[in-house]
Structures are given as structure tokens and as C-alpha cells.
Design a protein around this nucleic acid. Structure first.
Lengths: 331, 331
DNA sequence: TTGTATGCGTTATCAC
DNA sequence: GTGATAACGCATACAA
């Protein structure tokens, strides 16, 4: 069982010093083509490649970032992870996926990432209590922290989010144009600022058109079941004449849950009796069975912006990026 | 900007040598309670925690594994990633998520993981071409490689898979019992051995009941669209009297696509005119709108088995684990 | 352009 | 039980 070969071994074979070997593997280092060729040949014969671990220890850069996720129930996470890994890898940076759950909370995760010397921490869609971070930072040199796809309350923690104002404005305009006049909103979490913002914009843009939001329905989580249950409860509690004619749900999963309940178990026609709008444009919203009107987050753009900040190519600041409305048959 | 403190600094504060500090952080090391208390107090005041990078360099273990994924289109990947990260983290092991795509192929990914000195490589839902791995291994000390949720062709590369024989047997039994007699099968890839196996078992178990599989439909990928297109083509090309009465699709995504096409655009009733079975039990198969009968892979069990092998607690060998049939209204 | 000394923070091993 | 020496593999700074 052969071990990995080291720069020294390559140096011995090539007949140079190990520092010359290092130079051959350092882009832009001053080295003659001849030396470099010798080194590369020796390196190839030994299957040498630099030990990134040792390099990290010496440079104090791991070329590794931690992505923290605390909710795997939204399928939308998957394309985001694809984009994140793809674009980070293009920069030579590896992604450490850290699962925040009941065994491993936000603080554990952050400290663990710190112990692994990651170059940056991405809070991806996680619910982070705002006080936690300043407390942790006290007396510690934590890696830079970024928030992706969720708001940040902390002035010094940048968030890269979908532009909620734009999103809700185009949604409300679309609904109004289609003739809906009894709007409702379904939220998945009352405490989350991102959620709160969407709801506030929704009510505001409708009221600018002289229309009051008729109902705000609260699901307790962002799940199919929660959306379904919340709608059922609303349906039972509200006489037909009082019901909304369009329901905007805070994400696609909630919308699917609510729509299934409305259509499958309550016999409503979509969109004639009740229209639905979601948020995220996850894959299955586009199926014949749901055909859900929704708003698509500018995933590529968000991730590129994030990475530009992480790489120091762009000023670190909170950014709100516009996505696009996807109109289907549910409205 | 304070840097991370080191064992030496803690030692200075505690008035001991740095090796004593190390011992305080090494479970089971011989150290007096008094020393340990002193060290811990000093460590707490300095917010010290061991630098895992330096530890890795010294121990030649990174406590890090690479998980390679080459297809993020199947939502089923997400719960698997959740389980993987959860269970690995419980062992103190971090997961490096590596995206295999057109910019970064299997070989790149494996060599990169090797450069990062990971303790193991998990090929999740993807596999090497037969020749590749032995070639790479020649003259190199690669980390142990495991295949998860796909077959392995290589004798020395263990695969942890769902038991296809059990799965197909219970599916066929169920379909037969329900009275279906004109079975069809939709496959997403003709070359994949996992796919081939499922199809062969399907035909075999039906034929044991004296029934021939009426049609094998080929989609070219595992996507909603591919399932939909493949079914449309089949539907056009086959007279009504010749059509199957139940279609088992190789995964849920294909099934959803095919079902949507059959029901939404071709006016078939499910399951009266045509029944559907999927594979994976992904979230949305359980919705009212689809209510898809499917087979659930034993995710937790598979991952636990994998991790036991990685941790050296179990003999390294290919394992086939039974899942369970989930009956819904599509059959 | 190339070689040398030194440091990164930890662990393994041995002497006390 | 504790301290000391060496080593992990590479990079930085400096001297030649």
C-alpha cells in the first residue's frame, strides 16, 4: 500500500530541492521552464499532487467553506446546493455541508466550522437567532459569515436574498389584472423576518389598489402537511361567502399542500373557485397536476453574488436581487 | 482581530506544558483532574479549541469524507443528504459535498478528494466506469471508495443498495393481487446495471405468474419531462387494445411525468384505465394529486450500514437491504 | 532562478 | 503524570 508522495520525494527524483517543486506547483512563481518540466515529469511518475491539508496549515486558508442547512424539507434546497457546489468548485473551493438539527445546533455548527478553519460560513436558509453571533464573536476570530436566501438582522452580516418587494409587487399586479379581489396570504413562520416582509408587502401592495387582505392563514411549518392542515382549518372556520378568491402561499410546498386540500378534499376548482400562488418555482410546481403560478428566485445570480463577496471581488453588503414571475394555470 | 488561540497559549496561562493541554483534550489520556481543571479553565478563558487541520496533518486522519453526486434532479437526493450528514456528524465526521458535472468529472472529483486527504469517498447515486478506478489506483493510495444507492461493478468496491429483488417481488405480488394482468415497465437508462436488474426482476416475477410483460418503455433520463415524453410516444404508437393496464416506472419522477401525461393530456383515469407504480417514495408522491404507490428505500438503514463500514465496525462488503412497499391510490 | 532556515498547530513517542 | 524531541507536508522570507 503506497502512501501519497511528497514534494521532497519528487525533488529527489527530479534532482532539485523541494522548494523548486513547490514553485512548479505555484502559479506565477519564478522558475525556469526547464526546471519546471523536470519537476512535472518526476511528479507525474510519482503521481504527486500537493497535500491540500498541509498547504492549508501553512497558508491559513483552507479553500473550504461551510454551508449550514437546518431544514431539508424544502426541495428547493437541492438546486441551490447544486449551484453552490458548482460555482464554488469553479473557484477551487470545496463545500462542507453541515446539517443543523436537534443533535447539532447553530452554535455547535458554527464552532465546528471554525475548528475546521473554513474560509467562510454560509447560513443557507437557516433560522439563526440574531443575538447568537455577536456573543460567539466576542473574543473569537470567527470566519466571515454570510446569509443566503434569508434576511439578516445584523448590520455586519450580509444577506443575499431574493427581492421581496419586487416579487410581491409583480405578483399582486398579476393577480389584480386577472381580476382577483379577495386576496389571502398563507405564512409558514410568524417569527421569520423574511416571512414577515413578504406578508407586509403583500398587504401593502393590495391596499394601494384599495383592496384589503381578507385573510392571513398561519401554517406552523413549511411543509405540505402544514399547508394542507392550515387550509383545512381555515375552510372549516370560514363561511363560503367570506372566503378569499386567491391565496398566495409563502412557498411552493405550502401552496401544494393547500391546493391539494382545497381541490382534492374540499372540491374547489382551481383557479375558478380559488387561485393559488407559490414561491420558489420548485420542479413539481410545473407539473400538469399542479401547474402552480409562482415566483422564481434568481438562484444563479444570488450564488454568484455571494461567491464574489466570499472571494473578495465585490464589496460585502446585503443584496436584494429580483427574480421572475412564472405564470401557470393556478391563477 | 484576534486569532485562534493555540495549545501553547493555553499552556502558558495554565502554567503547564502544551502537551498537558493536548492531554486535557484527549479523551482517556492520563492526566490528573487538577491539571485538567487548570487547563480547561485557561482554555475557556481563551476560547481555545483544537485546530482540526493541524490535528489532521499529524494524525493522517481528516475526519472528513467526500460525497460525490452527479445528478441533483432527483429530489430523493435531499433526504439522503440529510441522513448522511446527520449520521456522519454523529460520528464527528464532516461531509464534503462534491458536484460531478461537465466541468468536474469523476476522476477530477476523486483526485480532488484525495488531495484533501478525506478518509473515505462515497459515490452517491453514481458510479465509476469499470476501468477508471483500477487505473487510478495504480501507483496511488486512494481513500476507500463506497457506492451508495447504485450497484458497483467492481468486486473490491462495496455498494450499499436497496434490495431490488425484494422490491420488485412485493410490487409484482401487489399488482397481481389487485388484478392487473398487462404489466409495463418504464426505464430511465438502458445501460445502468441497477436499472437493468429492476427490469429483469420485473419480467421474471411476472412470468412466474404466467404473465408476459407487455411493454418496456424507455425514457432517456430520469426526469419528469422524459417520463412524460416517453409515455406520450408509447400512447401514440400503441392501439388502445394493446396498452398496458399498469406501468411500473423506475423512479417516482418518471412515474409522475408519465401519470401527468396519461391523466392530464390523454384523459386516462388512474388507476381504472392505467395504474402506476414508482420507486423511492419522494415527498410529493404522497400528495392528493398523485397518490402514487411506490417502494421506499431503507434510507436510514442503508446509511447506517455504510457508516458502519466506513468506521470499521462492519465488514466491508456489498449489501442489499430491503425497503417497504407504500400502497396509495395509483394502483 | 535556486537553495536554506523557520514556522504553521498538532500528535506520537520516548525519557523522566 | 509530565515535559521534551521529532515529525506531518507545505509556504514564506531571505540569502546565495
Amino acid at each position: 500500500m503506497s502512501k501519497r508522495s511528497t514534494a521532497q520525494q519528487v525533488a529527489d527524483v527530479a534532482g532539485v530541492s523541494k522548494w523548486t517543486v513547490i514553485r512548479a506547483f505555484t502559479p506565477g512563481a519564478s522558475i525556469t521552464n526547464k526546471s519546471k518540466a523536470k519537476v512535472m515529469e518526476a511528479a507525474a511518475s510519482l503521481n504527486y499532487s500537493p497535500n491540500l491539508l498541509a498547504r492549508s496549515l501553512a497558508t491559513n486558508k483552507t479553500q473550504q467553506v461551510a454551508v449550514l442547512v437546518d431544514d431539508f424539507s424544502n426541495p428547493q434546497k437541492l438546486p441551490f446546493l447544486e449551484t453552490l457546489t458548482d460555482q464554488f468548485q469553479a473557484e477551487g473551493i470545496a463545500v462542507l455541508l453541515i446539517n443543523i438539527n436537534r443533535h447539532f445546533d447553530h452554535v455547535d455548527a458554527l464552532l465546528h466550522a471554525d475548528q475546521r478553519q473554513v474560509d467562510a460560513v454560509i447560513l443557507f436558509g437557516t433560522a439563526f437567532r440574531d443575538e447568537t453571533l455577536p456573543e460567539l464573536r466576542d473574543g473569537r476570530a470567527l470566519p466571515p459569515v454570510f446569509v443566503l436566501a434569508r434576511d439578516s438582522q445584523l448590520a455586519d452580516v450580509p444577506a443575499i436574498v431574493c427581492d421581496a418587494e419586487h416579487a410581491i409587487r409583480v405578483i399582486v399586479d398579476h393577480l389584480h389584472e386577472r381580476g382577483y379581489r379577495k386576496p389571502g396570504f398563507m405564512t409558514g413562520a410568524q417569527v421569520l423576518s423574511t416571512a414577515l416582509k413578504r406578508r407586509q408587502f403583500y398587504e401593502e401592495f393590495w391596499s394601494r389598489k384599495g383592496i384589503a387582505t381578507k385573510a392571513v392563514i398561519s401554517a406552523d411549518r413549511y411543509s405540505y402537511q402544514a399547508g394542507s392542515d392550515a387550509f383545512a382549518e381555515y375552510f372549516e372556520a370560514t363561511p363560503a361567502s367570506d372566503r378569499v378568491d386567491v391565496l398566495m402561499c409563502e412557498n411552493d410546498i405550502l401552496a401544494i399542500g393547500a391546493m391539494d386540500e382545497a381541490r382534492g378534499r374540499r372540491g374547489l376548482r382551481v383557479p375558478e373557485d380559488l387561485a393559488f400562488v407559490g414561491f420558489d418555482n420548485f420542479d413539481l410546481g410545473g407539473t400538469e397536476a399542479f401547474s402552480l403560478t409562482t415566483y422564481e428566485q434568481p438562484r444563479e445570480h444570488m450564488v454568484r453574488t455571494l461567491i464574489d463577496m466570499v472571494m473578495g471581488r465585490r464589496e460585502i453588503a446585503t443584496m436584494s436581487l429580483p427574480g421572475r414571475l412564472v405564470v401557470r394555470r393556478s391563477t
